[in-house]
Design a protein around this nucleic acid. Sequence first.
DNA 1: TAGATTGTTAATCGATTAACAATC
DNA 2: TAGATTGTTAATCGATTAACAATC
Lengths: 226, 226
Amino acid sequence: MSKGKDSAGGSEATTPKAAVGRVSLYLRQLESLLKVGQETVSSTQLGAALDITDAQVRKDLAYFGQFGYPGIGYRVAELREALRGVLGTNRTWKVALIGVGNLGRALLGYRGFANRGFVIEALFDSDPRLVGQKVHGKEIHPLDALPTLVRERKLQLAVLAVPPESAQSVCDLVASARIEGILNFAPVQLKVPEDLCLVSVDMGLQFEQLAFQVSQRRAGGAQEPR
Amino acid sequence: MSKGKDSAGGSEATTPKAAVGRVSLYLRQLESLLKVGQETVSSTQLGAALDITDAQVRKDLAYFGQFGYPGIGYRVAELREALRGVLGTNRTWKVALIGVGNLGRALLGYRGFANRGFVIEALFDSDPRLVGQKVHGKEIHPLDALPTLVRERKLQLAVLAVPPESAQSVCDLVASARIEGILNFAPVQLKVPEDLCLVSVDMGLQFEQLAFQVSQRRAGGAQEPR
DNA sequence: TAGATTGTTAATCGATTAACAATC
DNA sequence: TAGATTGTTAATCGATTAACAATC
């Protein structure tokens, strides 16, 4: 069974969820090193760039395999490939965009998606006035075309950029269409079935977190960094 | 020297950062209960809605004060006000939006901001072709007008919706303009001075986290929830 | 070789959960 | 009163950091 870290064994060290988040940060940093032409990088360097300890970096990476060379560090290009494999972004994901309002359109043009292997293959909206129109050369489909198109085009993920009021019902529809994961931008606590993965981004909530930080800073002068 | 955990005292229980994130979730839930007209709510109910334990809910709230009534629970309207006070959203924050591209425009129209007290008061862009134009009735200013306008209009926060290449330099400019906090949407690790608060949202990164979850689910059938 | 740096084990630290007396 | 539910202390669990032998 050698490296079968997760899945089977059961006795293996459990991977902290926070570590997975940091893998994305490592990857982002590696891309940037790659651009600059740096060939190897140490855990100390990587940590300094991201404001975490070298021990943390090594530990995180070790959850997923042995990628480093003692005395050398990590080879940038090699580690990048490895981490893309870990996250599952070494392949292309086909995505349905649901809700083609302001936010939806912005996401459609967002470089950071296509870049990392997420390709928006179909657009959906419940507004009959939008259905049939084209954005970026892509036709907008009615919501009830979702199940069919998911099957035909083998869509795997969905981005929800719909108003909060309709988010849950759209989510239910998506679930029944056998999509595997949802990236939700509606500021709502969605209920999803067990077998559907969900990541939610609430931008207003992030703003609140910022307001809290600023208020604290003012009040306490607490220098707790982050 | 009490390592200055929280402002004064020194002996207070230190507030987990994760707890602050959950406060935003509680608040969102309370707003929704308020709409439905529910007057009180117990830690068990709140927890069930958000998929966390009742103990966690009580502990989190207790970091910030005594808001509950034994035998009753929490009064929804009252707790809402209290938590808005905690986060600093019981007042209005004046915001500069920097970068008026697709994403910037979407954020400009985003209800979730104004709703929670974040008002975009001025727009900025480095593109001379955009400068002078109006969006939503608001004029777009050149970047170098930032310091002056921050002072004149007492802008406190900035939203960065600029391309990754220019994010750091814009960030530096914002810092020198004495803005207190940045909400950054550029997928870059920004370096900020000690006294400037920063929250970053990398939407591509969220997508990666989703891809990881889906890959895991497929491979392991691991039923770790969350 | 000497110097650098990994992967990993043990020690520390922090956060979550359980349990329960206090109280409405 | 009996029932419900809080705030808080103690127990558990998980994640981070430190330290170091192995290795290039």
